[in-house]
C-alpha cells in the first residue's frame, strides 16, 4: 500500500522568488525507510512539511499539486488524525517543546490523542527506556544537553507510534554511538510495527545501510532516488551535488576505479571491510 504520494507538488514561500519545492512526484510504499539528503536550503524541510501538512496550513505561499496519505488528500485530514498518523520531529528540538518538564513533554502527544492511563504509562516507560532519558523526566527540557534535547524530541514523537514518522535531522547533535542506537531503534520499530520512516540527514554514513531508498533533493527537485547500492555508484555526481559517500564506500569506489575491485559497492561498514579483505587477498599473495 502507498503510504505517501506527492503529485506535481510545488510550494513557494510568500516573498520568495523561487519555488522551494518544485514539481515533485513521489511515491513511498508503506513500511519503507526513506532517507532524504541534499545541501542546505534545497527544500528538504519544505518537502517533509508539505507531507505532514504544516505547509500550507501554517504558512503563507503558493501551493500546487496534491499530497496523499494512505490515499487521502492530506488537506482533508483533521488535526488529531494527522497527529496520530504522521509523527514529525523538528530539526530544532527546542522549537518543538511545549512543556516545562521532560515527562510532560513525553506524554503531551499521548494525552492529545486520548490514550488511557495505562497505555500512556507503558509507552512512557518504553520510550524512555530505549532512548535512555528516564533520568531526565524531572528536568526542564531547556536545561539538558543538546543531544539530550534531541533524544527527548524524538522520544516524544516515537511514543505516539504514528504510522508514518518523519524525522528532520534528528541526530545532528548526537554522539556517533547515540546516532547508531537511535537508528537501530527506528529500524526495529519499523520492522515490528510496519511504520514508514522518512529521515532527513546530512550525515549519510549511518543511515545509508538502513535505507530502502535514498532521495537526493537539489534545488527543490528530486535529483536522484535509488536504493543505497545504486545510489552511490556515481560518486562524482554526488560530490557535485554536495554529498560525500561514506568513507568505506568511497575507499572501495576508489579501488574500483583503479581496477582493483569489480564487485558491488558496499554501503555499510561491514560490507566495506569484506570488500577490502577480498581485494587484499587477491592482491597480496
Amino acid at each position: 500500500m502507498k503510504a505517501i504520494s506527492c503529485q506535481e507538488l510545488s510550494w513557494k514561500y510568500s516573498g520568495r522568488k523561487r519555488f522551494a519545492v518544485e514539481n515533485v512526484n513521489l511515491d513511498i510504499e508503506e513500511n519503507t525507510f526513506v532517507s532524504i539528503v541534499g545541501p542546505n536550503e534545497h527544500g528538504k524541510t519544505t518537502l517533509v512539511s508539505c507531507i505532514k501538512g504544516l505547509i500550507p496550513a501554517n504558512y503563507h505561499g503558493i501551493w500546487y499539486g496534491k499530497v496523499e496519505i494512505f490515499g487521502e488528500d492530506n488537506r482533508n485530514i483533521t488535526g488529531q488524525k494527522m497527529a496520530s498518523e504522521v509523527g514529525y520531529v523538528f530539526a530544532d528540538p527546542e522549537s518543538q517543546f511545549t512543556s516545562m518538564t521532560v515527562e510532560e513533554e513525553l506524554v503531551f502527544g499521548l494525552e492529545n490523542i486520548g490514550l488511557p492511563f495505562q497505555v500512556v504509562h507503558d509507552r512512557l516507560e518504553w520510550v524512555s527506556e530505549i532512548t535512555l532519558i528516564k533520568e531526565l523526566w524531572d528536568k526542564s527540557p531547556y536545561e539538558i544537553s543538546g543531544g539530550q534535547k534531541q533524544r527527548v524530541a524524538i522520544a516524544s514523537v516515537l511514543a505516539m507510534k504514528p504510522r508514518i514518522m518523519i524525522l528532520d535531522e534528528p541526530t545532528s547533535m548526537l554522539d556517533p554511538i547515540g546516532k547508531d542506537s537511535i537508528f537501530d531503534i527506528m529500524t526495529n520499530v519499523k520492522n515490528e510495527t510496519k511504520m514508514t520512516i522518512i529521515v532527513v540527514e546530512h550525515n549519510i554514513e549511518q543511515i545509508a545501510p538502513l535505507s530502502d531508498q535514498i532521495l537526493l533533493m537539489y534545488e527543490g527537485q528530486i535529483a536522484k532516488m535509488a536504493p543505497p547500492e545504486e545510489f552511490f555508484n556515481n560518486s562524482d555526481f554526488l560530490v557535485d551535488h554536495g554529498i560525500l559517500p561514506p568513507q568505506a564506500t568511497a575507499f572501495v569506489d576508489r579501488l574500483k576505479q583503479d581496477g582493483f575491485y569489480d564487485g558491488v559497492l558496499p554501503v555499510d561498514y561491514e560490507g566495506g571491510v569484506k570488500a577490502t579483505r577480498q581485494v587484499l587477498q587477491r592482491h597480496t599473495a
Binding site: 554522539d175 556517533p176 554511538i177 547515540g178 554514513e205 561514506p246 568513507q247 568505506a248 575507499f251 561498514y269 566495506g272 571491510v273 577490502t276
Partner: peptide
C-alpha cells in the same frame, strides 16, 4: 568513552 573513530580509521 563512547567515541567511535572515523570509518576509514576503523577499516
Amino acid at each position: 568513552a563512547y567515541v567511535k573513530p572515523p570509518q576509514i580509521t576503523r577499516l
